[in-house]
Amino acid sequence: MKINIVKQSGIYTLTSEQILPISLEKAWEFFTVPMNLDKITPKEMDFKITNNPPAKTYKGQIITYKIGILLMIKANWVTEITHLEDHQFFVDEQRFGPYAMWHHEHHFEEIGPEKVKMTDIVNFKMPFGILGDLFGGTLVKNKVRFIFESRYTILEKFLKP
């Protein structure tokens, strides 16, 4: 697992890589089913899809969620799938939610039989400009890192050959 977060010009960029012990076909089938997001999101996030998206991700798709952001505080979140290249990548972007900006690229590359490199690139910006960054930047950066570290562990167990 490789996870890195850098900040430039007020925008955080998280890059995460994970090798999955499954075929590209199986990886694509799993990650393009919106309801599977529940399975790989840590329980601590109290994450719930609130609309009823179709079983397969497509360009233009809107997905709505509720997500725990602090102790008892939940936020509504709306994302749109803005780009999709079959068996290669898809992008979800926040349309409404807790960030000033959220752009998440999901890349899949077959690197051998039953072996896929999954790369996530997330660009996000805190709300409220410099004040949001000062008061919440480190907390949110660590929370986003926690989500991807947890996903790594969840996927290691879930996709065990």
Rank of each mutant, 00 (worst) to 15 (best):
M118W: 12
E109D: 08
W102Q: 03
Q88C: 15
G68T: 01
V91Q: 03
T82V: 11
Y58F: 15
I81D: 08
P53K: 06
E109C: 05
P54W: 00
H83K: 15
G60I: 07
T57K: 03
P113I: 13
E105K: 15
F108Y: 15
N52C: 02
E85A: 07
R95H: 04
V116G: 09
E85V: 15
P54S: 11
L71D: 10
Y65C: 08
Q88T: 12
K56A: 10
D86K: 15
H107M: 02
A55G: 08
H83F: 12
I111H: 07
E110Q: 13
M101A: 12
G97C: 05
G60V: 09
Y58S: 12
K74S: 13
H83V: 05
T79N: 06
E114D: 12
L84P: 11
E109P: 10
N52I: 08
M118G: 06
I81K: 06
D86R: 10
E85D: 10
W102F: 06
G97T: 04
N51R: 02
G60S: 01
R95F: 00
L70I: 14
E85K: 14
H83P: 00
H103R: 12
T82G: 05
K59N: 02
E80H: 00
M101R: 13
P98I: 11
L71E: 06
H106A: 06
I81S: 09
H104G: 10
I111W: 06
E109W: 01
T82F: 05
K56P: 04
Y65R: 08
V91E: 02
V78A: 13
K117S: 08
I69E: 11
V116Q: 11
P113G: 00
P113K: 14
W77R: 05
A55P: 12
K59I: 06
Y99K: 07
P54L: 01
K74G: 06
P54I: 02
K117Q: 13
A55T: 11
D92E: 13
K115A: 14
I63G: 02
G60R: 07
D92W: 03
I62N: 00
Y58Q: 08
K117R: 15
E110F: 03
M118L: 15
L70T: 14
D86M: 07
M118S: 01
